[in-house]
């Protein structure tokens, strides 16, 4: 008789194989282990806590259904992250476009003021505590359009190359480069503004 798995001390690949064979408890352990990362990725893209929870849970259900298609080409968490990103992109496509998105797109098409803005010379995040920095980045990311934020997230957090981002988002590499540049410059400006606002208050 086979010895039952001690899930908490079992490595991912073994848990994955058990889950592929239908062992739900193994899958639960995988969920517990990687839920923060999957949720964080959903939240960084959609910027809404409830939507991020729903999308991350949907991703786990899809992951379970497609688990037999996972052959270990990447780590399990990377594979799950790709699933949640695709769900988030579908969600954003379905979501009604906000008027600010149209303006952002217009800015991007015409080059955007940030393209010609003088670089931020002082590091706006210098000497900030981690929590403070995170709150500030949170606020700045929230002001980017979905398209610009998503490119930034895929590049900076997922460490995807331009080509991979273009494939994931269904756009050209040129568009990816342009959006990434715009997003970074705007983020730098927003972080500087936020710091300026704090100083004046």
């Amino acid at each position: 008789m086979a010895t039952p798995l001690d899930h908490a001390s079992t490595e991912d690949p073994i848990l994955v194989r058990a889950a592929q064979a239908g062992e739900e408890a193994a899958f639960e352990e995988l969920v517990a282990r990687h839920r923060d990362r999957i949720y964080a990725r959903a939240f960084s893209v959609v910027r809404n806590e409830d939507e991020a929870i729903d999308l991350s849970q949907e991703a786990w259900v899809k992951g379970w259904q497609r688990l037999t298609q996972f052959h270990g080409e990447s780590s399990f968490s990377t594979w799950m992250t790709r699933i949640v990103i695709n769900l988030c992109l579908d969600h954003l496509r379905r979501r009604k476009r906000q008027p600010t998105d149209s303006l952002d797109a217009l800015d991007e098409d015409s080059g955007g003021v940030e393209r010609y803005m003088a670089p931020v010379t002082v590091n706006p995040t210098q000497r900030l505590e981690r929590g403070e920095l995170r709150a500030r980045i949170d606020a700045a990311l929230g002001q980017l359009s979905d398209a610009h934020r998503t490119v930034l997230v895929l590049h900076e957090f997922e460490e995807m190359e331009y080509k991979q981002i273009a494939e994931t988002m269904g756009c050209s590499i040129g568009t990816v480069m342009s959006r990434l540049f715009y997003a970074r410059r705007r983020l730098a400006a927003l972080l500087a503004d936020l710091r300026g606002e704090e100083r004046s208050s």
């Binding site: 839920r35 923060d36 949720y39 964080a40 990725r41 939240f43 960084s44 806590e49 929870i53 991350s56 003088a118 670089p119 931020v120 010379t121 590091n123 706006p124 995040t125 981690r130 929590g131 920095l133 995170r134 980045i137 930034l152 900076e156 957090f157 970074r184 410059r185 983020l187 730098a188 972080l191």
Partner: peptide
């Protein structure tokens, strides 16, 4: 200066989402 700004932005974002936890 542009290169410096781009690098600073990258540094600021590094590790940002590691602290995000499911509520």
């Amino acid at each position: 200066a542009l290169v410096k700004e781009l690098k600073q932005t990258r540094q600021a974002l590094a590790g940002y989402d590691e602290a995000v936890a499911l509520p």
